[in-house]
Simulated assay, not measured.
Amino acid sequence: MGAREISLSPTANAIASYSRQADLKAVDSILQAANAQAVTGFAGMPKSLVETKVQDLSAAGRSALADLARYVLPVSSLLELASVARYRVHPRGTSTLIRRTSGHVLFLIDGCALEETTDSQTVRLWRSGAVFGEQPIVHGFSPGSSRTNETRYLNFLSESRCLLIPRDKLRTLALSDPMTMLMISRIGMDRTNVIERLYTVTRKAPVSRVATLLDYLAGETTVMRPKTVENEEKQLVVKPMRNAIVEGPTQNDISEALTLGRATVERALGELRREGALLRFRKGERTNRVYEIADRDLLQQIARGG
């Protein structure tokens, strides 16, 4: 709904254009995988031959190689997945349906999405790196879970770049390649860990739960910036601060995801700004859907309950 299919996202141009530099980056990704998985059929293959294999891929396939390199897979599996992968960009405000019978597994490469399950009426926020639609592959081998039958909607809260891989291809690889099956299992474990850490009802204070969610959504976007602060001797010193920006969810989205009242979330955000974990916005600055982290270390301390 509203998505546009692309062969190459603008955000991936530096990695997967038709240029020679992009080819070399894709080759480097696949060679790293070969070094990590010496048991694959491509281990020990001359770099020139690997480069030829990569050049046979489309530009989207090369981009997929770079995006899938985080998963330690045999090179043969990486090449097979990259050859059938395609990208879609979903503008903010659009949505897509994820269900058991859909034909693709969706990897959220860039962006922020809100997952809504209609059966159990749960709402969860996800950052880049989240994967959707892989559960039927696992439960296809171990039937008995009814949760995979739930209808899930993904609402994209910012422009999001997604990688789509046919589920049948993943299932076939998982049956023949233990590392692919392990990757799928780890995706499920990571998802469970995030749900338990963020969305399971806890005794933490609301401000700690909001801080934990913002820290998760910020991902790896930390930027070091200097900031003038007072030390214990009341002297002004320059201290490096870890900053990041979370963009996409509204306060209402956070409220629904954490099952907290809207006023409770608003008070928690106000407290995080007073403590200095979040930046205070100047008059006239955009505040809706944007949360700029002023001090990542402090935010994580508050998330731990400190």
Rank of each mutant, 00 (worst) to 15 (best):
E159Y: 13
P74K: 07
R282V: 03
D56P: 11
G133S: 05
L49R: 11
L154C: 07
I293Q: 12
E150I: 09
M183D: 06
V223P: 02
R99Y: 15
G41R: 09
R225N: 08
L81Q: 00
V238T: 01
L272E: 00
P206M: 11
L24Y: 03
P46W: 01
E116M: 13
R147V: 12
N155A: 13
D56Q: 15
G44E: 09
L57K: 03
N155D: 10
Q135N: 07
R70G: 01
N193C: 15
T118Y: 12
P143D: 07
V131N: 05
L106Q: 07
T200N: 09
L164N: 12
T101Y: 04
E275T: 10
S128T: 03
G305E: 07
A12D: 05
P10R: 13
S128R: 09
R274T: 14
Q55L: 14
V75Y: 00
L217M: 07
L108T: 06
L157E: 03
V246C: 00
F132H: 12
R296D: 15
T221K: 13
K283G: 06
L258C: 14
E256Q: 11
E292R: 15
L299S: 01
S76L: 01
T264D: 01
T11F: 15
V84Y: 04
E80G: 01
L157Y: 11
T40M: 03
R167D: 06
G270L: 12
L214Y: 04
V72Y: 00
S9G: 13
V105E: 12
M181R: 02
M1R: 10
R171S: 15
A66N: 08
G305S: 02
S48G: 04
A22I: 05
T11I: 15
G44C: 10
G270Y: 13
S95A: 14
I109E: 08
Y153G: 08
V265D: 05
F42L: 13
N155K: 15
E247S: 11
R161L: 15
S142Q: 06
D110L: 13
G140L: 07
R225T: 02
R92F: 12
L298W: 08
Q121L: 13
R282L: 11
L157N: 07
G111C: 13
E247A: 00
V39N: 04
K169A: 08
A26G: 04
E5M: 10
D177E: 13
D253Y: 09
A277W: 05
G133L: 02
A82D: 03
S208R: 07
Q55W: 14
N155M: 11
A26E: 06
A294I: 03
L164S: 12
R100D: 12
Q55P: 09
L278I: 03
S145I: 00
T202Q: 10
N252T: 10
G93K: 03
N243R: 15
L65Q: 08
S29H: 04
P91C: 02
F156V: 02
R242D: 07
N149I: 09
A66Y: 01
L164F: 14
Y153D: 07
G2F: 10
D67C: 10
R280Q: 12
P74V: 04
L8V: 05
A303E: 03
K47S: 04
Q301M: 11
T287V: 13
T192G: 14
L213G: 10
L182Y: 01
C112Q: 05
V246Q: 06
S17V: 08
